[in-house]
């Protein structure tokens, strides 16, 4: 009987350690808090009226006192210990969108840039009418030599969810742009685009212009969720 109890005790302690570690890992390495697109009415489409939702994002070149950068759920700590100098999307890279809707995204862009490796991503893909606006003026692409980042949603390897591929280039700030006390350009570049979502599904998105550290710039923010990549959940 004593042996049985010791066996049971060992198994229970083991299960507890695994469960505790999983919970800790989930808490420590979880995605940033989810930002939801705000539904603000309906929008006409060739398939009839659809829900219209708005999402606002920003891109900062590094964190500051005003914009602390990607944080873990409720902890106030940066996702990556050495990530304070990395560019990031803000306020979150975990995005939730309504299904079967028209989604209008506005990105306020504060980062510099350069020549994109793959100029294909200097043109928008998968957006309504193939045009987007930069500071209010419609565009069908940006110069490949003047790209800061892209916002690119990919289909997950998941057979039972609708195809969704959206990519929009975000132009770079001038190197001489005046900056505020936090080191950010005083005036952001505002990029607005619209795309349609289908049935519910889970997707990932990332920046397709390697803007990180290490070998060919794929390290740092490019390989750490919460900076230049995240998830899109269509619900």
């Amino acid at each position: 009987m004593k042996r049985l109890l010791i066996v049971l005790g060992t198994v229970i302690v083991g299960i507890g350690i695994v469960a505790g570690s999983a919970a800790f890992g989930h808490w420590k390495a979880a995605e940033p808090a989810v930002i939801k697109a705000v539904v603000d009415g309906t929008s006409p489409t060739p398939d009839g009226d659809r829900t219209h939702a708005k999402l606002e994002l920003a891109i900062y070149p590094q964190s500051s006192g005003a914009v602390p950068g990607p944080q873990l759920n409720d902890t106030g700590a940066n996702v990556a210990a050495n990530g304070q100098g990395w560019p990031f999307y803000w306020p979150s890279t975990s995005i939730e969108l309504p299904a079967n809707s028209v989604v209008e995204v506005t990105i306020h862009q504060y980062d510099s840039g350069g020549t994109i490796y793959n100029p294909w991503f200097a043109k928008p893909q998968g957006i309504v009418e193939g045009t987007f606006t930069v500071n209010g003026s419609p565009e069908v692409g940006v110069s490949p030599t003047n790209v800061a980042h892209t916002f690119t949603i990919h289909q997950l390897p998941e057979g039972n969810q609708p195809y969704l591929f959206v990519s929009v280039p975000v132009p770079a700030q001038s190197a001489n742009a005046p900056t505020d006390a936090n080191g950010y350009p005083t005036k952001p570049i505002d990029v607005t685009f619209t795309f349609r979502t289908g049935a519910p599904g889970t997707y990932v998105w990332n920046c397709e212009f390697p803007c990180g550290t290490y070998y060919v710039s794929f390290g740092g923010p490019m390989s750490q969720r919460g900076y230049m990549s995240g998830t899109v959940k269509v619900v």
Partner: peptide
């Protein structure tokens, strides 16, 4: 497997 290994571990400790 995990449960089996824990039982084996308990046997070792015991």
């Amino acid at each position: 497997i995990g449960i089996g290994m824990l039982i084996f571990l308990a046997a070792v400790i015991n």
